[in-house]
Design a protein around this nucleic acid. Sequence first.
DNA 1: TTGTGTTTTATTGCCTCC
DNA 2: GGAGGCAATAAAACACAA
Length: 524
Amino acid sequence: MEETTEMQSEENKLSMEKNKKRRLKTPAQLTALESFYNDHKYPTEEMKSELAEELELTEKQISGWFCHRRLKDKKLLNDEVGANGRQDRSSGVIQDRGSGLVQDSCGSTKHGDYRYLDPKEVESHGLYNHEFSAADMTYAQRSHHYSENDSATDNTSSQSCSSLQDRLLPQGQDQYDMEPSIHLMPNGSLPPLNPKGANNMGYKPSGYLKVKGEIEHAAITAVKKQLGNHFQEDGPLLSVEFDTIPPGAFEGQIADLANEGYYAANPALPNSPEVSAVKKQSSSSRYDSYFTKLRSQDSHMVGGDFGSLHGPDFQDKKSHKQINQRASFNSFTNHLLHKNSSLDLYVDSTGEASAYNGGKNHRVGTKHGFEGMRSDTASYPSDHYEENAVAVKQIDSLLHLYNNINLKNVQKNEYVKSKPSNSIHKSQIYLNAEEKGLTKRMAKEENFNGERKLKKQYHDPDGIGVLSNEKMVAKRAKVDPFESYDVKQTPVSDLEPRKVQRSAAEMPSRFSEDETAETSSSVD
DNA sequence: TTGTGTTTTATTGCCTCC
DNA sequence: GGAGGCAATAAAACACAA
């Protein structure tokens, strides 16, 4: 069976080279590529080779894909920057995006345009030590924007607010670290910009980060003005009314759900119970589970030899962290594979990490769990599928609440107890990348499998742009090409049915879209 | 069903860096 | 000079409205 598939894929490859006609990547291939792209926009030759082998593509195709993917990013970025640049000029307030703070990921910036984020500075300030690569930060930033667009059911005005917050977050910091500075002080003034999180992370923003922080003042002020009386500091966001929740209604569940969400989203969390449980046992590649997952996702991949990445060389290069990540990923995926509802996920997670979880990453966690769940339930009967959707929405709501309640407490502990992991960021990153990366075609194929019609909404990447020196990232990767290989949750499309796809050009910046009419007057 | 627009893939040429 | 990357371009695949 596998032999047959392998032969077919070989034939496929050959015919592909013979036949100049372009062939679409399979969903699994795209998924893998997207996920890989999230981690490595500039994969090394070795990585490409491995990818090519695993995805049954040629290295040329891999290279080409990455190249085009970068171009795509850049194009989308430029579109947005253009749109926002106009808006920014009109508002005269938010200038960070078109003022040079935002750079693309490709050629135009590779010759010294990264003026606002000196890699050396980043490194010297411990970002690398905290396992945030410049690329990670970039994508994390951008990914906020992806997710911002993904929910058409959400109220747009609140998104407008949050998206702006997201965009203005200093690089390398979680939005929840910045929450104190995002929230207005009781007197309506802006709180100090230096959040606890930054202190706890052991570095202070400087250079680009510093600039971003300064910009944030004006930006938030502007937003506040623009929002006017729609903004309720501690209440429902922006004209959205929520039913009040009975006191203590979800007291028990909330914590669990928060944990669950977090661990679902951050399988690599050092404090994760799953990690500690399996910490020592894994010695195989994180790719193992990753591609294994893919294998089940796409019949094209069934015959793939994913074990080829498990060679000694590869293994030798793995860090303990990676092993942990992989192990927890296995746990995560295994967990998912046996659950029909995310409500079952990690409900037994307790302890310090739960605090970390609940406050810091719950949203991401929830969404990530969402994604992961969908990944595994895509082929389930649709009733399960919808059950999951409802369940996850409930979780998300609960986690929202939980976060609001516990944010401050969490922030006191999170970085002290658990060093922020790259994978935490990547969880965010990946989530949105898969939203972005999955095409309608992929959704279609998923629909076929899941007997459910889904439409994908193309998520416009944020114009936040690449602030990192990609070449540096790539070179760093070259030194240890597999060092940052990261197991991802199997990329999947969104659980909720998507709206009609919109092109990047059609995707306006929330900020520009919402405030176009009022901005000038409010600022004036 | 068809036409149109968008997205994705492939190719080529040029540029920069080592 | 070679390798890697970007930009431009073409064309296939796809989505969607009429």
